[in-house]
Amino acid sequence: MPHDHYDHEHDHSHEGLSPSGHPYRADNDTDLSYWQAMEIALRELLIEKGHLTAAQLHAQINAMDSRSPANGARVVARAWVDPEFKAALLADAGAASRVMGFDIGPMHLIALENTKEVHNVVVCTLCSCYPRNLLGLPPDWYKSRAYRSRTVIEPRKVLSEFGLELPEHMQVRVHDSTADMRYIVLPAQPEASLGLTEEELAAWVTRDSMIGVGLPQAPQ
């Protein structure tokens, strides 16, 4: 499949930074690695042999690109303004998110409510399981040995490395994800944001606050 349609996603015209301000991983302009050759070969064989189509791949990559923490932020903001929705979200986060139009896939999704007394944080010690349908793909640090190993034994220290210092009286609950069961944190609404509209509130909800390594913040 020489030069298909999504190469434009990867131009290097932003001085090495993507629209979100992060560096691209080396890709098109570096030497072809063995595993990159494997990806091309496998993809082309699966298409040639009729297991997949190029259109399916294109659609899947577009769907992946369209998922970002903004999706999760909309769910959180709705829960802050709508007590009925919040109850539904805490009862079955997958079903409540689907009602908002988000494709959650077959996994079981659980929302964890942060309160004045309890702070929740999410990890996957075994692998990299993450609520990708609401937050997009996991950041590198979420998949790192350090985060996976330490979050379950010294969560307060881990959180402090993200700049989050929790008061001593607050209970910290760590939730270890599995392939079939994913978690998203429902952060406590900051007092300074009370009275804002749902749309305004969504801008306060950061990705890190939905993983539990940060708190909602006033938009910059």
Partner: peptide, 13 residues
């Protein structure tokens, strides 16, 4: 394990 390095990358094609 060592300290958390808050690395972020956009994904390559």
């Amino acid at each position: 394990a060592g300290p958390i390095t808050p690395e972020e990358h956009d994904f390559a094609l």
